[in-house]
Design a protein around this nucleic acid. Structure first.
Lengths: 333, 333
DNA sequence: ATGAAAGCGCTAACAA
DNA sequence: TTGTTAGCGCTTTCAT
C-alpha cells in the first residue's frame, strides 16, 4: 500500500469544516472561533497533515523563498555574509535557494533564470559586477533585489556595504603615516566596481592627500585566492614597494606566506593591510592588520532589508552603510 | 500598467496550438512535428515566455530542487563539500535549498520540515548525528536521502565517505611509528558517531596494534572551531602527551597556534596530524600533516548518487567509500 | 501529432 | 465566523 499524502481536503472532511477554515487555521487567520480552531488542530495532528508549500506558492503568489547568489561558497568572506543572511532568513521563515555565480559570466544568467523561474520572493546578490544582461534579467520582474557586500554604481538596488572608499583610504594613509612612500594595491578584478571604482579611488585619494604621485605599476590585479596571493608576491616585490593594501583575506594570506617563504620580515621589511578581517587574519603569523567589516551583519541587514521590501514596507534608505574600522595586528608597525 | 505575466496559455493562443503542445515543446517531448515546434519556439521567444517552476512542480510532483543541510557554512570543510554538491546539482539542473542545521538539535527538525514542505525531490545531509526524531522525519516521505561526509551506523541512507576508521588508524600509527607513546585524540562531539564510533575506533585500534593501553584521559572532546582548538591546548599539554590526532582542521589550526604561542616547537617537541586537508593546512606555519579526503568529490559523488535515486535508477551500492591518504607536511617529523 | 479536460493542493474573494 | 467557488500555471491521461 502506498503512503497517501494528506491534503487540506482530508483535514476538512475529518474535522467537518470547509477547506477554507482549515486554511485559516494553518495560516493563523484570527477569524476562526477558538473551539473550531482546536478541533481542526486536533485533526491536523492526528492525521499529521503537512501543508504543501508548492501548492501554497502557486495559489498565493508567495513562495517564502529567496534566492542567494554567491560567487564562491568556499571563500570565507562570502560564507560569513551567507551566515548572516541565513540566520535572518530563518528568523523570518524564508528558505534560501543558493546558487553559485562563479564559472564566468556565461552561466550567471542561466543560474539567475533558474532561480527566478522558481518564483523567489526576493534576491540577494553578492560579489561580481552586475552587468547589463544581468541587470536586464533582474529588471523584468518586480522581484526585490539587495546587494550584500557589493556595490552598484547605478544605485538601482537595495544594498548593504561599508564605505569602501573611506576604508581603503584610511588603510593606505596608515601605511603612508608609518613611512611608506611606495605602496602596492593588490586587488581582485578591477572590472568589478567595488575594486575598479571604489577601492581604487580610496587608494588614490590617500596618495593624493600625501602628495604622492599615483603610479599604475603599483596596482596588481589578480583573483581572490590563496594561490593568486602567493603567485603575485614576486612581482610586487620586484616593483620595489615597501607595503601593500590587499582587498581580500585569502589573497592577503597567500601574499603574506609568499613573502615569508621568501624570508622577508613582516612587518619590519614589508607591511600589509588586508580588507575583510575574517578568521584568516588571526590564523596566520604574523596576524594581519585589517580593515574590519561587520561581515555577519552585512548579510543579516541585507536580508532584513529584503524582508521589508518583500512586504512592501516603507524603506527609509535602500542603501545602508555599516561602520568599519581598522584592527591593528602584527603585519604593520 | 502592470507587467502581465505570460503563461503557457498566452503562448498557445498566439501560436494557435493547445497548451499541451506548448508544454511538449518546453519539455522537449519528441512527439511534436518539427514545424509546429519551430512555430511555438518563435512565439515563446517573441513573448519572452518563462515557465513557472512552481506550477510545474505542483502539476508534475517534481520540483527539480534538492535540500542541503549543512552544519556550518563558514567551516571550510563543509563549504568544500557544498561546492561539489552545487556543481553537480547545477549540471543536472537542480536548484539547491540550503539550510543550516546548527543552533542545537531543537531547530534542526524545524528546518528539515520547512525544506520537506517545499517538496524537494531529494536531500543531502551533512554533519551531525542523525538522531531518532530526525530519522523519523526523514522516513515519512519517500524522499531519497544521501549523507555526505557523515556516517550513519544504521546504514539506512545513501552515503559518501572515506573509511574513517582506517584513516584515523593510519594517522595514529604514523605518530606511534615516529616514537610517540602518549598520543591525544582531539575531537569534535563524540555524540556524533563519526567521532564517537568510527574515528575513536581507529585511534584505539592503532594503540592496540602497538600494545599501547588506551587511556581515556587522552581523549579531548570539544567543538569544531578555531577558538576551541586554542582553548584545549593547555589541557592537552598538561596531560603529558607528545602528539595529537585532531579531527577537524579549524580545530587543529587553533590547537597548533595555541602550541606555538606557548613556545612549543612543532614538530620537534610535539607532532600534530589533522583530518581534512583543507586549505587551512597549507596556510599555517608549519604546514599541517593531514589525512586527505577528496572533499569536492565527496560532495559531487553524493549529489550524483542522489540524482540516480531521484530517477529511481538501479543503485549498485548506496554506501560509497572514497579513497583517502595521508599528506605529510611539517607538523610531523 | 495534437487537443480537451481533469486535476495538482492550496488561497482568496465573495457570499451567507 | 464559516463555506462556496474560482482560479494559480502547469502536466498528463485519454481521445482523436
Amino acid at each position: 500500500m502506498e503512503k497517501q499524502t494528506i491534503t487540506i481536503y482530508d483535514v476538512a472532511r475529518e474535522a467537518s469544516v470547509s477547506m477554507a477554515t482549515v486554511s485559516r487555521v494553518v495560516n493563523g487567520n484570527p477569524n476562526v472561533r477558538p473551539d473550531t480552531r482546536e478541533k481542526v488542530l486536533k485533526v491536523i495532528e492526528k492525521l499529521d497533515y503537512r501543508p504543501n508549500a508548492v501548492a501554497r506558492g502557486l495559489a498565493s503568489h508567495r513562495t517564502t523563498t529567496v534566492g542567494v547568489l554567491i560567487p564562491d561558497i568556499t571563500n570565507i568572506f562570502y560564507a560569513s555574509l551567507a551566515r548572516g543572511i541565513n540566520d535572518v532568513a530563518t528568523m523570518y521563515k524564508y528558505n534560501i535557494i543558493l546558487a553559485s555565480a562563479d564559472e564566468g559570466k556565461h552561466k550567471t544568467d542561466a543560474v539567475l533564470q533558474s532561480i527566478m523561474a522558481k518564483q523567489v520572493d526576493g534576491l540577494i546578490y553578492m560579489g561580481q559586477h552586475v552587468d547589463d544582461s544581468t541587470r536586464k534579467e533582474l529588471d523584468r520582474g518586480k522581484t526585490p533585489v539587495v546587494l550584500a557586500g557589493t556595490v552598484d554604481p547605478q544605485d538601482k538596488f537595495g544594498s548593504v556595504n561599508i564605505d569602501y572608499v573611506a576604508a581603503i583610504k584610511e588603510a593606505t594613509s596608515r601605511l603612508i603615516a608609518s613611512g611608506n612612500q611606495r605602496i602596492a594595491f593588490v586587488t581582485g578584478p578591477l572590472s568589478d566596481p567595488i575594486n575598479g571604482q571604489f577601492r581604487l579611488k580610496g587608494y588614490q585619494e590617500a596618495l593624493s592627500d600625501a602628495k604622492i604621485a599615483y603610479d599604475e605599476s603599483y596596482v596588481f590585479e589578480t583573483e581572490y585566492s590563496y594561490r593568486a596571493g602567493e603567485a603575485v608576491w614576486d612581482a610586487v616585490k620586484r616593483a620595489g614597494v615597501t607595503a601593500a593594501v590587499v582587498t581580500d583575506d585569502e589573497l592577503a594570506v597567500g601574499f603574506l606566506n609568499g613573502a615569508r617563504d621568501a624570508k622577508v620580515k613582516i612587518p619590519e621589511d614589508f607591511e600589509i593591510i588586508t580588507s575583510n578581517n575574517t578568521m584568516l587574519t588571526e590564523i596566520v603569523r604574523p596576524k594581519l592588520t585589517s580593515i574590519a567589516q561587520p561581515l555577519y551583519d552585512i548579510g543579516a541587514v541585507a536580508m532584513r532589508l529584503l524582508t521589508k521590501m518583500m512586504n512592501k514596507e516603507e524603506i527609509d534608505q535602500k542603501t545602508i552603510l555599516l561602520p568599519h574600522s581598522i584592527i591593528t595586528r602584527n603585519s604593520t608597525k
